[in-house]
């Protein structure tokens, strides 16, 4: 059984410890950023940021809601990025059987820009990024190196409030259900984001679109069934047919 994250947004204070710890563990260089009128920085995931806390604010009947979304790869059970990747370069994107981690290997440099766009589009959460200089595809690694050695992923290790949780899938699902039941008392809209399909489960307390455009798979249509989700895999083949 794979490992699973539970990201409990009802406990996230957006301290960004996870965002920074991720960079530190992976020794990713800093981007030159600028203030654009938001605390969210860098503005998006990029080859140097596998983890990004997204900030989103809105008024809910005159009450301020400020939602924090520590975005990262969901390590899908059946990863569309890998399915798509295999179409072009088999074995460059792999899934660790033991942990369930979906990994972009060093071999992903073989993807062309266009091929990469297909991989990115296959991801329902818009996670994959490509370094334009090296061509390397990148995203969250589940800190697979740490996990293999019995350590927690860096982002989970540093979280001060219990927003980031990690463990056996069965345990995380149990925790998710119990937290959901508690949180629902205060936040009736609370839900788990695509829990059946992914190994990074977000507990949301507001509508998914109030966090981010890719909070859940195809946010515009609400949570997908597994069937719909897998159906997205057909898209690239259609795209290829056109070429």
């Amino acid at each position: 059984m794979p490992k699973t994250f539970l990201i409990d947004t009802s406990r996230c204070t957006a301290c960004r410890g996870c965002q920074i710890a991720c960079k530190e563990w992976h020794e990713l260089p800093a981007n030159q950023t600028r203030q654009r009128g938001s605390h969210q920085n860098p503005p998006d995931l990029n080859p140097n940021n596998y983890k990004l806390v997204r900030f989103s604010e809105h008024l809910d009947n005159g009450v301020i809601r400020w939602n924090f979304f520590p975005d990262q790869c969901r390590h899908c059970d059946v990863p569309p990025c890998k399915e798509m990747g295999d179409v072009y370069h088999e074995g460059t994107i792999i899934q660790d059987e033991k942990t369930g981690a979906v990994l972009f290997t060093d071999k992903t440099t073989v993807f062309t820009g266009e091929e990469f766009e297909q991989v990115r589009e296959a991801c329902p959460y818009d996670i994959p990024r490509r370094d334009p200089k090296t061509g390397l595809l990148s995203k969250c690694t589940m800190c697979n190196d740490r996990v293999q050695k019995g350590m927690l992923p860096a982002c989970v290790k540093v979280c001060p409030t219990g927003a980031m949780n990690f463990g056996e899938r069965a345990d995380m699902l149990k925790l998710a259900e119990s937290r959901l039941a508690t949180v629902k008392k205060t936040w009736p809209k609370a839900m788990l984001a695509d829990p059946g399909d992914v190994n990074v489960i977000f507990l949301l307390i507001d509508d998914p679109e109030n966090y981010h455009t890719h909070t859940v798979a195809q946010a515009a249509f609400g949570p997908m069934t597994k069937k719909q989700f897998l159906a997205t895999l057909a898209r690239p083949f259609k795209a290829m047919a056109k070429v």
Partner: peptide
């Protein structure tokens, strides 16, 4: 959160400056 007091130390830590740059 991302900088310490007057920032004399943390502005010299690139990852923190990336998160709160200006």
């Amino acid at each position: 959160t991302e900088h310490w007091c007057g920032g004399g130390e943390t502005r010299n830590i690139p990852n923190l400056l990336e998160a709160e740059p200006q």
